[in-house]
Structures are given as structure tokens and as C-alpha cells.
Design a protein around this nucleic acid. Structure first.
Length: 594
RNA sequence: GGUCGCAUGGUCUAGCUGGUUAGGACGCCUGCCUGUCACGCAGGAGAUCACGGGUUCGAACCCCGUUGUGACCGCCA
């Protein structure tokens, strides 16, 4: 029997036709001399009927079990009145089976093959091939596939050249921890898997390709999160001779095309909000704001500077800030206990506690309201724009702690109160004008906020000069944010040796250490690099958002769990001693049983 | 590296303040059934309550540790 169509595609148009189908048994309903089987393939489900009119087929049906692989031939017939199933696409018809064959028997699956969370994450990953049978997972991976096709098509149409860069490359300082690959030919030496194709795409610009594009796998040996896997995929591009705004316009059209192709959403370029990094931090407490939430953070530092409430007054006196969000309608929604829970949560950001007040018709309410029964209270209401029924949540202290806390509280309360705008489901933003450096407490020095090849703003170039304060410089870098997720990060690159040298010096490199690390790039630059810039968009995150998922595992066929292992293959595993020997490696006994 | 949570038949889970025949749903097996689509009915099998130790007359339950796992903080140029 040769398949003529997909089970999920059979509909009224096929009535009267003989079809041959193959797929998995989703469900068998046995009535003795009448058996129904829901046959599932990648396109969906169709109901098969087996009756005594075809005893042989009936026998096959009675022996079939869930997840058996079946091939059938049958006639598509309209269902009798009242027997339609409106829940499935093919519910108006069914297939009267004349021939049936079991292609493969199947063990009872360890969990039900159906949508909705019905098994633990570990089990689903261990039996990933079963999990992937679920319609939702099939849809997720097809969304991902569509994004890749759309992205590639757009790039091709716009004269970008798809060029692959190496996976076996060189470990470079700065950035994330590298995944290392030992060299057999040179024992004791290692390749590194790329954290991104950054340096190679700059060299490709240097080579004159002008427009480069790649769907590139990247590797970073850092701990995982819901939106972070150790290997992930970037939609990576780079162009020559374009300004930051020109690149953003191009990327905007790229994303516009993807949104149209994948979720049929008409993104207007003017709807991509532009915020400076500082503005985003001030208004939302984060560099990746979720603009679907209307309420913003208000700075009340000046308002409460001389307040009777010591916590606020002292926070400002000690160089910190006092900020707040007014959660619309939050007063009635949250009990004191609920608020305590929120307060407990933000302790992980370093917050000492959560000050709050409820706004009622009779004024401010709550344990600290007594300090604000005066004009300061009035001023808080005025400055925060809080109305009766709102819940005021405060952050007081170090600016970064307050920002992280209020960012969390803003997103959490919006979720709790259903205040995430569903009318405008896709809110993109460009975050521009980033600091060039950020201070690393771990390394006790300034490190590149984006990467060491990011071009400073022209007017800030002098900050890199001797005797000036480099960390005042801002960068020609830009992040694309969607619904509170960082989708991608890009910048204009340094293409001139003199600037690059100053930059590396500011980062603490000597001439020698810089040459050792990126000598090939620095030398290449001396042979004439064009001005260039680009961006890399996180395919996994984009696919996650467009598929409506909240973890990138759901859009990766074989992902790692939160401990960076893969329950199905059990990777990583120890290897044979002979393999190590060949590579000139030795694993200390102390590390072996971990 | 850290914080918090979770671990009970194949799966999802209930199990309160320590004494239960460890309950339910789905699944599985057997039988019956010609219009189901969450099929139904009758019967049945299936549990090292993650592991180790402790407290107690008595532990799925309390305590300590271990392991696994999830979320988060650190980390992620």
C-alpha cells in the first residue's frame, strides 16, 4: 500500500475517493463488530471505521493498540447527520477501511501522546521522540522551520550571501565560557566552539562580501535558563557601509517579513518603539522591557527625600533611589499575604523588603501610610499617577536592586491582574545608545558591554584617549526586544586599527595579549576593513514567542535539561581511557565521580 | 557556586496535626457491545511512597544527609 495523502488532510473534498493512509493509532474505540480508530500523522487526525463487511481489516483493527503504526486503504464517506465531530478538521468525514496492515507494533507509551502537560519534564526529554509526536510539538518545530525559511528567503532577496563559518575555532578571552574540543593532532591544544560567528563575519566584510547571512549554531558553557540553552541558533547577518539606523531599518523589514510569513501579523516599522538604554532602565528597570504592560516605573527619590519614613529618606541620603509602580486595580487583588510573597521574591535581587500602600477613596492605606498622611503623600500620588484602587509598590535603595525588583513586580503584577495587552500582541523595541563598558565585580575591571569590537559613538571617541574616562562612552549598539525578551543584539563594529587598539587598551589588554587573542582580526583590519555593522537574532527565542511557548526547550527538537544534560542520550558521558590517551588528556580522580 | 520548590503503581496526582487495606483519574490486561469520538459496561493486574540514616511504640508524613529534577540569583563579551 502506498500512501496517497495525509490523514489530517482528508476532508469533504475526498468524499467518494479511495485513499491510502499511514500513521499512528491515536485511539481505538472497540464495539466488537464495529471499531473506530483515530489515525494520526503530522497533519492531524482522521477517523477510520472497521466493520464486519471487511473481516480481515476488522481483525487488524481489533489487534491494534495505541501508537501502532498502521497503513490502510479505504473509502472516504460523509458522516451521517449528527455524527460529525466538530472538534477535528476531518470531523465531517470518515474512512471506511477495506484493507489494513500493521506496519509496526508499539509498546504502550510511557505518557499520553496528547497536548497539555501530562508528564514531567525529565520523562518527556528522556522519551523525546514520543514527546515530539504531540501535535503541539509538531507545530512548534514547524513554526521554527517557517521562521528559518522566511528569514533565509528575505536575506536571499536582499542580496545577502549565506556563508558558513567554522565550528572548530579558537578560544578567545572575554564573554562566556567556551566549550573546548581537544585536538588529537596537537595534544594539549584545543579548539573552541564559537560563542557566535562575530569575528568571522567581520573578516568576511573585510573580504568584501558586503552582505553576509547565516543561520549559525552558537555555544556558550554557562548555566541554563528558560530562554537559554548551551547551544542555540542565531539568525546572523552583517553588512558593510551602512549606518546603525539603516541596519535597523533593514532588520525591521526582515522581522516584518518573518512576522507576516509565520504568524500573519502586519508589523509596521513605525510601531517598533525606539528607546535609549537609559530611558528603558528609567521607565522599566530593564534593558528588555515588555511594552505590552502600560504602567511604568516612577522616580520618587526627590519626592520622598525628606519624608518621615526613614527607609525612604535614608535610601536617598545614602545615594540610592526610591521608585514605585502603581498597579492599576491592585489594591483589591492583593492581600497583605500576597504582597509579602512578592516581597520575599525580590529578596533574591538584593531587596530588603517591599514597601507598599493601597490607594483608596479615603486616601493611602497600609502599614506605612501613617508616614504619608501629609503633602508628601499627595506628592506621591501626583508623581506616580496612582488612582483609587491602585496598589503602590516601592523600591528603595541601590539603583540596580530597585530596577530589578520593580521590573519583576511590574511583569508579575501585570500577569496576575491580566494587564498584559492582548490587543497588540507583538511589541517590538529598539534599545539604543548603550554604555560601551560595564563594570565587572568578578574581574574588578571594566568589560565590554556588548563585545570588544563595538564602535563607540563618534562624539564619545575621545573618552578612549589617554587620561579620559572610557566608561563614560556610549556605543553604536542596538538590541531588538520583543515582549520582554532580548531577541537580538547588534552594533556598528570598529573597522579602524587605531580605535580598536584604544578599545582593547581600555579593556586591559596589552599589545601582546591582544595579539595573542585576536591578532588575526587586528592584522586583517590593517589590510583595509570597510565600515560595517550587523546583528544576530535569537532564533530559539523568536520561535518560542511565535509558537506561544514559555521555554525554548519547546522549540528545540532535542534540548538539554536545566542541568545541561540530555536525558535521552545521557550526554555528557565519560569516555574510554583510550580516547583520552589519544587526546593527551587525563581526568583527575577527584573529578571523575562527580 | 547559591536560594527556594518538588520526588507516591506506566502517567498525572490525593494523602490535613505520625496510626489509611496508601485513595482517585487516565493508561494497561480479559470479556461483552454496530455509531463512538473523554465510548460504555463487567472484571483484573499493577506501589522498595527517590535513596541512606535518625526521632518515635509506630514514618509516605517529622528531622538530617544524598541523589535526581524544576524555577530563580550569580553567570550569559
Amino acid at each position: 500500500m502506498k500512501r496517497t495523502t495525509y490523514a489530517g488532510l482528508v476532508d469533504e473534498q475526498y468524499i467518494g475517493q479511495t485513499v491510502m493512509l499511514a500513521g499512528w493509532v491515536q485511539k481505538r474505540r472497540n464495539f466488537g463488530d464495529l471499531v473506530f480508530i483515530d489515525l494520526r500523522d503530522r497533519e492531524g487526525i482522521v477517523q477510520l471505521t472497521f466493520s464486519a463487511a471487511n473481516q480481515e481489516a476488522l481483525n487488524v483493527a481489533q489487534g491494534a493498540r495505541n501508537e501502532y503504526v498502521l497503513a490502510i486503504e479505504g473509502e472516504v464517506v460523509a458522516r451521517a447527520d449528527g455524527q460529525e465531530n466538530k472538534k477535528i478538521k476531518s470531523g465531517g468525514i470518515e474512512v471506511k477501511v477495506t484493507k489494513a496492515e500493521i506496519l509496526a507494533e508499539a509498546k504502550t507509551p510511557v505518557f499520553d501522546i496528547e497536548d497539555g502537560v501530562n508528564a514531567g519534564e525529565e520523562l518527556k526529554l528522556q522519551y523525546r521522540y514520543l514527546d515530539l509526536r504531540r501535535p503541539e510539538m509538531q507545530k512548534n518545530l514547524r513554526v521554527r522551520s517557517k521562521i528559518m525559511a522566511s528569514a533565509t528567503h528575505f536575506m536571499d532577496q536582499n542580496d545577502f550571501i549565506n556563508i558558513e563559518t567554522p565550528y572548530l575555532s579558537k578560544s578567545t578571552p572575554e564573554g562566556a565560557r567556551d566549550y573546548l574540543v581537544p585536538s588529537r593532532v596537537y595534544p594539549g591544544s584545543f579548539y573552541a566552539l564559537p560563542q557566535s560567528p562575530q569575528l568571522f563575519k567581520q573578516l568576511l566584510m573585510g573580504a568584501g562580501f558586503d552582505r553576509y547571512f547565516q543561520i549559525a549554531r552558537c555555544f556558550r558553557d554557562e548555566d541554563l535558563r528558560g530562554d537559554r540553552q548551551p547551544e542555540f541558533t542565531q539568525l546572523d547577518m552583517e553588512t558593510s557601509f551602512m549606518s546603525a539606523t539603516e541596519i535597523q531599518e533593514l532588520v525591521g523589514r526582515w522581522v516584518q517579513q518573518i512576522m507576516k510569513d509565520v504568524v500573519d501579523f502586519d508589523l509596521k516599522l513605525e510601531d517598533i518603539t525606539r528607546l535609549t538604554w537609559q530611558e528603558s532602565m528609567d521607565r522599566f528597570g530593564t534593558d528588555k522591557p515588555d511594552l505590552r504592560i502600560a504602567y511604568e516605573i516612577q522616580d520618587l527619590s526627590e519626592t520622598v527625600k525628606y519624608s518621615d519614613f526613614g527607609v525612604f529618606a535614608n535610601a536617598v541620603k545614602d545615594g540610592g533611589v526610591v521608585k514605585a509602580i502603581a498597579v492599576p486595580g491592585g489594591a483589591d487583588h492583593y492581600s497583605r499575604k500576597d504582597i509579602d510573597k512578592l516581597g520575599q521574591y525580590i529578596e533574591r535581587f538584593g531587596a530588603k523588603g517591599l514597601a507598599w500602600m493601597k490607594v483608596t477613596d479615603d486616601g493611602l492605606n497600609g502599614p506605612i501610610a501613617k508616614f504619608f498622611a501629609d503633602e508628601v503623600g499627595e506628592a506621591i500620588l501626583a508623581a506616580s499617577g496612582a488612582k483609587s484602587g491602585d496598589l503602590l509598590l516601592f523600591g528603595a535603595g541601590r539603583a540596580d536592586v530597585v530596577a530589578a525588583s520593580l521590573d519583576y513586580l511590574r511583569r508579575q503584577t501585570a500577569t496576575d491582574l491580566d494587564l498584559v495587552d492582548q490587543e497588540n500582541p507583538w511589541r517590538f523595541a529598539w534599545i539604543v545608545d548603550w554604555p560601551l563598558f560595564e563594570y565587572s565585580e568578578d574581574f574588578d575591571r571594566w568589560i565590554a558591554a556588548h563585545h570588544p569590537f563595538t564602535m563607540p559613538n563618534e562624539e564619545d571617541l575621545h573618552y578612549l584617549d589617554e587620561g579620559e574616562d572610557p566608561h563614560k562612552a556610549h556605543a553604536q549598539s542596538y538590541d531588538l526586544v520583543l515582549n520582554g525578551y532580548e531577541l537580538g543584539s547588534g552594533s556598528i563594529r570598529i573597522h579602524r586599527t587605531d580605535i580598536q587598539e584604544k578599545m582593547l587598551k581600555a579593556l586591559g589588554f596589552t599589545k601582546e595579549s591582544a595579539n595573542e587573542a585576536f591578532g588575526f582580526l587586528l592584522e586583517g583590519m590593517e589590510y583595509g576593513f570597510p565600515p560595517m555593522g550587523g546583528i544576530a537574532l535569537g532564533l530559539d527565542r523568536l520561535a518560542m514567542l511565535l509558537a506561544g511557548q514559555d521555554n525554548i526547550r519547546e522549540v528545540i527538537a532535542f534540548p538539554k535539561n536545566s542541568k545541561a544534560t540530555e536525558p535521552m542520550t545521557e550526554a555528557p558521558t565519560p569516555v574510554a581511557g583510550a580516547q583520552l590517551l589519544e587526546l593527551g588528556l587525563e581526568v583527575p580522580a577527584s573529578a571523575e565521580n562527580k
